[in-house]
Amino acid sequence: MCASLQDVRFLWGNHRYSAAMTVQPPPTLDTPRLHLRLVAPEDAEATSAMMTPAVSRWLASWPMPFTVAMARERIAMARSLAATGQALSLAVTAHGDGALLGWIMLHRTRDDPRTATLGYWLGEAHHRRGTLREAAAALLPVAAAWLDVDRIEASAHPENAGSFAVMRACGMSFRREAVIHAPSRNRDELVHVYAVERDALTLPPGTARR
Results as ranks from 00 to 15, higher is better:
residue 187 R to E: 15
residue 62 W to Y: 10
residue 186 N to K: 08
residue 193 V to C: 14
residue 61 S to P: 03
residue 91 A to Q: 02
residue 54 A to C: 06
residue 91 A to D: 01
residue 61 S to K: 03
residue 73 E to M: 07
residue 199 D to T: 02
residue 201 L to V: 02
residue 54 A to I: 10
residue 118 L to F: 14
residue 76 A to C: 02
residue 114 R to P: 02
residue 76 A to T: 12
residue 27 P to K: 02
residue 147 L to C: 04
residue 188 D to G: 07
residue 88 L to I: 14
residue 112 D to E: 15
residue 103 W to A: 13
residue 61 S to A: 13
residue 138 A to Q: 01
residue 96 G to W: 01
residue 51 M to R: 04
residue 50 M to T: 07
residue 84 T to M: 11
residue 160 N to W: 00
residue 126 H to M: 00
residue 161 A to S: 05
residue 111 D to K: 04
residue 71 A to F: 09
residue 67 T to H: 10
residue 195 A to W: 06
residue 28 T to C: 09
residue 199 D to C: 00
residue 161 A to M: 12
residue 177 E to R: 11
residue 143 A to H: 00
residue 116 A to G: 04
residue 148 D to C: 03
residue 186 N to I: 00
residue 96 G to I: 01
residue 111 D to P: 00
residue 57 R to C: 08
residue 33 R to S: 13
residue 25 P to H: 03
residue 145 A to T: 13
residue 42 E to F: 05
residue 121 W to N: 09
residue 111 D to S: 09
residue 167 M to A: 15
residue 74 R to N: 06
residue 29 L to V: 05
residue 76 A to Y: 11
residue 7 D to V: 13
residue 182 A to R: 04
residue 98 G to S: 05
residue 111 D to L: 08
residue 191 V to T: 05
residue 202 T to N: 06
residue 29 L to E: 02
residue 84 T to I: 03
residue 63 P to T: 06
residue 156 A to K: 08
residue 147 L to K: 05
residue 168 R to W: 06
residue 29 L to M: 01
residue 31 T to N: 03
residue 130 G to W: 14
residue 70 M to K: 07
residue 192 H to Y: 15
residue 99 A to Q: 15
residue 26 P to M: 08
residue 83 A to W: 04
residue 92 V to H: 00
residue 210 R to Y: 06
residue 124 E to H: 12
residue 210 R to H: 15
residue 82 A to I: 01
residue 70 M to T: 09
residue 12 W to T: 11
residue 84 T to S: 13
residue 155 S to Y: 11
residue 50 M to H: 09
residue 209 R to I: 14
residue 79 R to L: 06
residue 6 Q to K: 09
residue 23 V to G: 03
residue 55 V to S: 00
residue 205 P to G: 10
residue 125 A to S: 09
residue 209 R to L: 09
residue 155 S to E: 08
residue 40 A to H: 14
residue 163 S to G: 15
residue 80 S to W: 06
residue 49 A to H: 11
residue 182 A to L: 03
residue 185 R to N: 02
residue 208 A to F: 10
residue 88 L to F: 11
residue 153 E to D: 14
residue 188 D to Q: 07
residue 182 A to N: 08
residue 194 Y to M: 03
residue 124 E to S: 13
residue 24 Q to R: 14
residue 102 G to W: 01
residue 81 L to N: 04
residue 3 A to D: 07
residue 146 W to H: 01
residue 191 V to G: 03
residue 23 V to C: 04
residue 41 P to N: 13
residue 174 F to L: 15
residue 13 G to N: 13
